[in-house]
Amino acid sequence: MQASPEAPGSGPEIALEVEEISVRFGGLQALQDVSLEVPAGTVCGLVGPNGAGKTTLFDVITGLLEPDRGRVRVGGVDVTSLPAHRRAKMGLSRTFQRLELFWSLSAGDNVKVGVEASRARRRGGSAHPDDAAHPESTARMLMDRVGLGDLAEAAVDCLTTGSARLVELARALAVQPRIILLDEPGSGLDSAERAVLADLLRDLAASGTAVLLVEHDVDLVMRTCEHVTVLDFGKVIASGTPHEVRSSPAVQAAYLGSSEASR
């Protein structure tokens, strides 16, 4: 695994770069020439109506789906041909819109799998026996960080969708990512939990992490994102600051009649 070439000094490093990605499912053009950049230390939004191709783009970026065309670069390194687990080792992490929890494990153990995965990586692939005590406390700390400190022992199928999403978030953070992709982390969360999430996103950005956020909650997007890309029918229809995007006629047309825009 090669280290990424750090751009010395000049402006914020582009952590994630998506270049002209196209994906076709049979007769459906799911993504067409989609490009975007996420600089280190910023939260970028990816919004659009349901079916616009947001989750498909996440699958392409993380390596779960092969694009028909286009490149994905992580820290300047072309990862388009790498399998998902290799990309993860380069510091790419994500959550899923349709939950992908480890249903047989407790909430805390879900996070622990992530902690242990990143420890093994740092030790060059070999797990060390005296690591055993530490992952436990790291996992608990992460559960606290997403506001679920009291639920470490809970079976994940007992959790609300909102809490389950937070478990996924804690697990995704456990691998100490440089880039994190969050697929509707706010859905199912109450307003207090959303506030915790917004703080967390800002903290992540402040610590240098690049965040790409798919979210329907316009308020959360406006509060946290520096830059927003809008997808509709697989194409980028607008891109800019949240305010620019909000006033774009193309975006208003795409959202016309959709309750999400007016919230």
Binding site: R94, L101, A174
Partner: peptide, 24 residues
Amino acid sequence: STLGRRLVAMSDSPAACATLGLSQ
């Protein structure tokens, strides 16, 4: 053990494991 948790995790969600850097 760690290995046991990983086996179960891999069985429950190969996709999540891959995005955590675990190879199947």
